[in-house]
């Protein structure tokens, strides 16, 4: 018997395979290693951001600031490298630290002042986006050798396709996140808080620390996503990654994580991202379909998955063992 908490993730995986196969039958040249690896290459930054978001949502919160944080990271990186001439080896750790601290700050406000995460991260979103414009309202192009290398380097795979360095970073983040979620106290405490914050407090778990760390981790992931996005775009711009928070939340939900917290898997999020990617690819292959269909289809998918979660939950509360 399949445990019921695995059901949404299985549906997600099945759906991904189904959509991919459907694409393969319909379009010549779709079924290839390169289409698959392109999914990862094009969505590496989204994957990294969504992994951080998974932790936040599992803890019962939400982080609306991720898209702005990505933009701010591209902006900071571009300024520090192009205008202040810092070396990348210094810039990257700095922006990552900045992202983590930004998240930590939001987490602290959420916890200590007991304000809804939605509102606090909304303010964070305004702040980060606004700071981009404080730096500059124009695009700053990056012409740094290291960043160009990172953008151009292709790693050949034995199967034929190739991947970028960003993909390796993203996959490393995924593996790290799975380990964190399932094999460390931080991860388990996150699930516990998502299940019941009140209980977690009474069980003596470090709720304050864990909540702040969750937002710090999400901030870190957004900054890392921003770094990868910088490799991808080779520029810093205040309008980068607008609406990314929605894509990330959608990926997490489609990946089977309950928006109410406590239940979810990083691996599910990976497939949530891949499904979004494959829909995009199909719409590109179709040619006649416009890009806005992606939004509509993702909206429909969100609806289906949220409905599925509700049905599973209602069923579960009806059938109790023992």
């Amino acid at each position: 018997m399949v445990k019921r908490q695995y059901l949404p993730i299985l549906v997600t995986v099945a759906l991904f395979i189904l959509v991919f196969l459907a694409g393969s039958f319909r379009y010549t040249g779709f079924f290839s290693m390169q289409v698959l690896t392109n999914l990862l290459i094009d969505n590496a930054f989204l994957l990294i951001v969504a992994v951080g978001m998974t932790f936040v949502i599992v803890s019962g919160g939400i982080d609306l600031s991720v898209g702005s944080m990505v933009a701010l990271t591209t902006m900071l990186s571009a300024t520090l490298i192009e205008q202040l001439g810092w070396p990348p080896s210094l810039v990257i750790p700095c922006v990552l630290l900045f992202g983590a601290l930004f998240g930590l700050g939001m987490g602290a406000i959420i916890h200590y002042f007991n304000i809804q995460p939605f509102i606090v991260t909304l303010a964070g979103m305004f702040l980060a986006r606004g700071l981009c414009y404080v730096i500059s309202i124009n695009t700053i192009t990056i012409d740094n050798a290291f960043y160009k290398d990172m953008a151009m380097t292709k790693i050949q795979l034995p199967g034929g396709g190739f991947i970028s360095i960003s993909v390796i970073i993203a996959l490393a983040v995924v593996l790290l996140a799975i380990y964190l979620a399932h094999y460390t106290r931080f991860g388990r405490n996150t699930y516990a808080i998502g299940g019941s914050e009140q209980s977690s407090l009474l069980m003596g778990l470090p709720v304050a620390r864990t909540k702040m760390l969750v937002y710090a981790f999400s901030g870190f992931c957004s900054a890392l996503g921003g770094v990868v996005f910088t490799f991808y775009m080779l520029s810093g711009y205040g309008l980068h990654a607008v609406g990314l928070e929605l894509d990330a939340i959608a990926a997490v939900v489609i990946g089977g994580t309950l928006l109410t917290g406590g239940v979810g898997y990083v691996a599910g999020t990976v497939f949530g991202v891949l499904i979004q990617g494959v829909i995009q690819t199909i719409i590109n292959f179709e040619g006649t379909l416009s890009s806005w269909w992606t939004r509509i289809v993702i909206g429909i998918l969100l609806f289906v998955f949220i409905l599925l979660q509700r049905i599973i939950n209602v069923r579960a509360s009806k059938s109790r063992a023992v």
Binding site: A123, F126, L127, G130, Y133
Partner: peptide, 12 residues
């Protein structure tokens, strides 16, 4: 665009 920064502080 900097309105956003001010808005952020108003929200806080």
């Amino acid at each position: 665009e900097i309105t956003l920064v001010v808005k952020a502080f108003v929200v806080f």
